[in-house]
């Protein structure tokens, strides 16, 4: 890698270290504090029975089925909503800050006046977003596996890794949405709205459509379903889920990079 490419990726990566540290602390606290309660649930048939008495649709919507099992507990407590939500939010915020946010703040102009192409600048920033998602993935893996060992959660490590990877890819997909919108618009508000809009609606589609036999087949349009619809903690992950999210993220980012190359750069 040339020094120029290194700067295009590492520069925005370094500039986001505070945000990265914040997301890291949030993930560690979330995982460790949730897993720490596992011993209280383990073998406690009372709590499981109480949860099982909730209405079926509610159990489905919040992933609380089989809450007494290790997979059910981690799904309901972390991987149905919270961890994928953190990855989605982190991806959206990083992507927005490094593209439309920096453009709106006038920070891109000085860099775009250097001997680098616009495509290279935005590609570097997209890779910096990916870099932070990889860091958060590693943090999640270490926190989860460490907590599992510490608090005695009997769960298949491979399926945990698959689930975390799918959550990270969901974050990358939502970041891709932001980069695609930033390729067409210079407004950070619009980019954030698009990112969170897609993330929120894709969760709603997965959570609510499965409650209606009529709508259930349509839940597969949701990226959240591609990531977690197959209950990867119990069943592992199909290859197409990785492909759909990964290829989708790359295509969306490519769309944004091409869009940015073809339009005016906003002045400060």
């Amino acid at each position: 890698m040339t020094r120029r490419w290194w700067e295009l990726i590492a520069g925005p990566f370094r500039a986001s270290w505070r945000a990265g540290l914040g997301w890291t602390i949030l993930l560690v606290l979330l995982i460790v504090s949730t897993v720490a309660f596992w011993p209280a649930f383990r073998g406690s048939s009372g709590i499981s029975q109480a949860i099982d008495q909730l209405p079926g649709p509610l159990l489905k919507a919040f992933g609380l089925e089989d809450f007494g099992t290790a997979a059910g507990y981690l799904r309901g407590g972390l991987y149905e909503v919270l961890v994928p939500l953190v990855f989605a939010a982190a991806g959206i915020v990083f992507a927005n800050t490094m593209t439309a946010g920096d453009e709106d703040a006038g920070h891109l102009e000085l860099f775009l006046a250097q001997p680098v192409s616009r495509m290279a600048v935005i590609t570097g920033r997209s890779l910096a977003v990916l870099g932070w998602l990889i860091v958060l993935t590693l943090v999640t893996v270490v926190s989860q596996l460490g907590s599992d060992a510490l608090f005695g959660v009997p769960i298949d490590t491979g399926r945990v890794l698959v689930t975390i990877a799918l959550c990270a890819l969901l974050g990358a997909f939502d970041a891709g949405v932001c980069i695609a919108v930033a390729g067409a618009s210079t407004r950070p508000g619009l980019v954030l709205s698009a990112g969170f809009g897609v993330a929120y609606s894709s969760y709603l589609v997965l959570a609510l459509f499965q409650l209606s036999p009529l709508l259930d087949p349509w839940r597969h349009v949701s990226p959240w379903d591609w990531a977690l619809g197959g209950d990867p903690l119990t069943n592992g992950g199909d290859a197409w889920r990785f492909l759909a999210l990964g290829v989708g993220a790359v295509l969306l980012a490519a769309l944004g990079i091409v869009g940015f190359d073809g339009r005016d750069v906003r002045s400060a």
Binding site: H107, V116, R118, A268
Partner: peptide, 19 residues
Amino acid sequence: DGIALRRRLTYMPGELRLP
């Protein structure tokens, strides 16, 4: 020829927004 050109010039923006 943007890259080749910007290698041969420097630009100081009027509205300065530095990181």
